[in-house]
């Protein structure tokens, strides 16, 4: 008798991997909380959509990715950028609209991109990311790189034709693509329990012939395991997967959102479900990581964010001459 499926590998993390995951989640949290404060000063142009509360998703998924892989993001893209390795100082400068930013200050929060890191960009178009990922996944498949494409999108984007077409295309072409539906309960102010007809976004996977799973988005380990299986499956030619990650965003849809459509779930999530608190409690209680090492990361991250804001504020803005550069870009 032979094994019908490989069951040998689990996704256990060593101490360094745990510390790295914590650093990423803490960096995202600190980045977003600082932006929440800084945006109120009026110095930041445009809109920002903050990812605080959702850190386990970007971190748990991107922990499995490497230089072969690419991701596409959303309005709420800072966390994805950080998890995929985009330079934090360049991101902050970009959000401040400065020449030292990731896109030379011309994109701002909703268009941060760094192709050198496989980060195809935050995206102003709802549902704009999944078609991009079908392209990169097809390229990886044709070239035989073993790379995968990951599209993060929200519950609102899950109702967009672009997303549904991409799910179909990825399945038809058996692409190494992972679709991560980040369901924070609201598309702007519209409840997903009202707007998503299928009750669960993951349920739609069956209609496209791919596995669909729901994961506790406040639990890094749950996301990490599911994403690990999906990435491994994609790399081995098994095809696409839809992962629905459920959680609550801590801030409004955008900074300035009065949030009249929701009440106490944020306070409850922060108090009882927070991914960083749960992560810290579990890895210290199991003796895998010493709390002092996590404290040290907290300090390092705080210093990094301080420096990023200070440098962003001091950096020059693009000039009129810069209007004529970066108009057309060859990849």
């Amino acid at each position: 008798m032979t094994d019908t499926l490989s069951t040998a590998v689990s996704h256990e993390l060593d101490e360094n991997a745990l510390l790295e995951a914590y650093r990423t989640m803490r960096t995202i949290r600190a980045f977003e909380e600082r932006l929440h404060d800084e945006f109120a000063t009026g110095e930041i142009p445009g809109f920002v959509h903050l990812y605080a509360g959702e850190e386990a998703s970007a971190t748990g998924v991107c922990a499995h990715l490497d230089g072969r892989d690419s991701i596409a993001s959303t309005h709420r893209g800072h966390g994805h950028c950080i998890a995929k390795g985009v330079d934090v100082k360049a991101m902050m400068a970009e959000i401040y609209g400065k020449k030292t930013g990731s896109c030379h200050g011309k994109g701002g929060s909703m268009h941060i991109a760094d192709l050198s890191k496989g980060m195809l960009g935050a995206n102003g178009i709802v549902g704009g990311g999944p078609p991009l990922i079908c392209g990169t996944a097809l390229a990886a498949k044709q070239r035989g790189t073993g790379g995968v494409g990951v599209a993060f999108f929200g519950d609102g984007a899950s109702n967009q034709g672009t997303t549904l077409e991409s799910l179909n295309l990825a399945s038809v072409w058996n692409l190494p693509a992972i679709f991560v539906a980040e369901n924070n309960g609201y598309a702007e102010a519209t409840s997903s329990s009202w707007s998503v007809a299928a009750d669960n976004i993951a349920d739609r996977a069956a209609g496209f012939g791919m596995p669909g799973v729901i994961v506790d988005g406040f639990d890094f380990f749950a996301v990490h395991e599911a994403a690990g299986e999906a990435v491994q499956r994609a790399r081995e030619g098994g095809g696409p997967t839809l992962i629905e990650v459920k959680f609550t965003r801590y801030f409004g849809h955008f900074e300035g959102d009065q949030q009249t459509y929701r009440a106490k779930e944020v306070a409850e999530a922060r108090a009882k479900l927070d991914c960083l608190k749960r992560f810290r409690a579990r890895v210290t209680e199991t003796g895998q990581v010493d709390a002092a090492r996590l404290d040290a990361i907290d300090t390092q991250v705080a210093d990094l964010i301080d420096a990023a804001v200070e440098e962003a504020k001091a950096a020059p803005k693009p000039t009129a001459a810069d209007l004529e550069t970066d108009v057309y870009v060859s990849y």
Binding site: T7, E12, A222, H224
Partner: peptide, 14 residues
């Protein structure tokens, strides 16, 4: 295994 994670058990080696 060290964590509850995604809850199901499918690695018999553990």
């Amino acid at each position: 295994e060290r964590h509850v994670g995604s809850r199901a058990l499918w690695h018999p080696g553990t």
